[in-house]
Design a protein around this nucleic acid. Structure first.
Lengths: 116, 116
DNA sequence: TTGATATGTAACCGTTAGGTTACGTGTTGT
DNA sequence: ACAACACGTAACCTAACGGTTACATATCAA
């Protein structure tokens, strides 16, 4: 996944309505656009635009059957984002954990000395 | 972390320049605003705005010492996002993994039968 | 066949994101 | 003292976001 794809995925997730839509579609695979729209206060057109963004980001796929577009959740981009973050900040996590551990242990030692 | 905080963090991460800024600040703790800006083509003002967003999202903190603002990376929000996503989609991951495992195992069995 | 249904397109509108330049304020080094 | 420096604020611009209404198209069901 390149940077621009990462942008798309993160931007798509950065909207509460779109996260709710992901929840809906992942819990009811094959859900229609209208069915999704029925859970929101905004117009169906607005919902369609959100869904288009989600599909562009690769977070949902869709197949049209007759007059109904069936929606499916695709978790792969999220997993890729996870991998990226964890590897990118792995060193920092480790370092920070180590620092924290050291400090906590240091304080614990002081406390022990004080009480001794 | 509430939904609006999640919005802030995801939106802040959804820009390649801001991700690069996080990389910079995490690799050089205490870095100044000007030092960060020197790594980008856009104006210092634009960089300041990005940094303000990052700070609002809680991804960086800053302390001013004299005329210099020192920046520090804060990984906590990222961990919270991570936790939220993993728990929210945990069931789905498990199900999908199981599906994949079943299919892979099914194909493996077929392959074994074929070669047998 | 024909009316209801599901989706899609087009045009528009207000707000915000992301950028600029100009200028102001406080701090530091010589 | 004062020039250079680091940061901050203000005003402005353009494009994209998120929403609307109106209309068009295609499919299903009675």
């Amino acid at each position: 996944m390149d940077a621009s794809q990462l942008d798309l995925v993160l931007a798509a997730m950065a909207h509460p309505s779109r996260r709710r839509m992901l929840d809906l579609v992942s819990s009811v695979p094959g859900m229609s656009v209208t069915a999704v729209a029925s859970h929101f206060d905004v117009s169906r057109i607005a919902v369609m635009k959100h869904l288009r963004l989600l599909e562009t980001a690769g977070l949902i796929t869709s197949r049209k059957k007759g007059r109904v577009r069936h929606l499916f959740f695709n978790p792969i981009p999220i997993q890729l984002v996870y991998d990226r973050w964890t590897t990118q900040y792995a060193g920092f996590w480790a370092g920070r954990m180590a620092d924290l551990k050291t400090r906590v242990e240091g304080r614990a030692e002081k406390e022990e000395l004080k009480s001794a």
